[in-house]
Nucleic acid binder design. Structure first.
Length: 259
DNA sequence: CTGGGGATGGGGCCC
DNA sequence: CGGGCCCCATCCCCA
């Protein structure tokens, strides 16, 4: 489910950035974050398989989608397999237009080649028996290309800004690696939050009770339990819930059907 | 089945 | 433009 209006679903008419510049390097969080963790009981990432902990290689070497972090390497049970949700890469790499123009030029100079092969669009792989057919098709693409669009090479998502795309690509490359358990994250602050699960640090305290939380969102969810007013109401039975997910569960359990 | 905690993902916003 | 943080959402697990 897209959570941003920036995400565009349509797939053609994409503008490809220079991915060699987008691929980010592994980020190791400052060692002081690990100081309160007594003994690393799980192998350090540097002695673990580079295949397992270098997600970049997963897509570039296979082109398909095995799980970047095999389940048996995940030290913490019950992780939602977000990695498994990653969509497979598009079937073919899109080559620059200039390359294809070169190819077409060489075909024009070789009539036999023209008969033997079809003209293929570099953007959507559609093929045409004639050059003019391809040219017409590409005109449509050019119109579409005038609308700014940056598409991900790992999945079919598109973004209106390069920055948004770069941020998204981190969700594939997962450059932030936990030194303790080797789990990889897309952003440093996600890793920091994860490290708190090792250290037990809970910086977010509830003002109404003694509970503390490692994550602000979880504190916010907890605060709802102190509130008399539940934010989420079932449209059918008017029952209210403290969390959207609880309302969804309620609806899925058949309330809406029953009414 | 319900409610709540824990962990995580990911786009947006601000500096 | 990038990093850090915010906010929302989701999933899993357990009582």
């Amino acid at each position: 489910m897209p959570r941003s209006f920036l995400v565009k679903k349509h797939f053609n008419s994409s503008k490809k950035p220079n991915y060699s510049e987008l691929d980010t390097h592994t980020v190791i969080i400052s060692p002081y974050l690990y100081e309160s963790y007594p003994v690393p009981i799980i192998p350090q990432p540097e002695i673990l398989s580079s295949v397992a902990y270098n997600p970049i290689t997963v897509w570039t070497t296979t082109g398909l989608l095995p799980s970047p972090l095999p389940n048996d390497l995940s030290p913490l049970s019950g992780y939602p397999s977000s990695l498994g949700r990653v969509s497979p890469p598009p079937p073919s790499d899109k080559s620059p237009i200039s390359d294809e123009e070169e190819r077409i030029q060489s075909k024009l100079s070789d009539p036999h080649a023209m008969e033997a092969e079809k003209f293929q669009c570099s953007l959507c792989s559609k093929t045409y028996s004639t050059f003019s057919g391809l040219a017409k098709h590409k005109q449509l693409h050019c119109d579409a290309q005038s609308r700014k669009s940056f598409s991900c090479k790992y999945c079919d998502k598109e973004y209106v800004s390069l920055g948004a795309l770069k941020m998204h690509i981190r969700t594939h490359t997962l450059p932030c690696v936990c030194k303790i358990c080797g789990k990889a994250f897309s952003r440093p602050w996600l890793l920091q939050g994860h490290i708190r699960t090792h250290t037990g640090e809970k910086p977010f305290s509830c003002p109404h009770c003694n509970r503390a939380f490692a994550d602000r969102s979880n504190l916010r969810a907890h605060l709802q339990t102190h509130s008399d007013v539940k934010k989420y109401q079932c449209k059918n039975c008017s029952k209210t819930f403290s969390r959207m997910s609880l309302l969804h569960k309620h609806e899925e359990s058949g309330c809406c059907v029953a009414h």
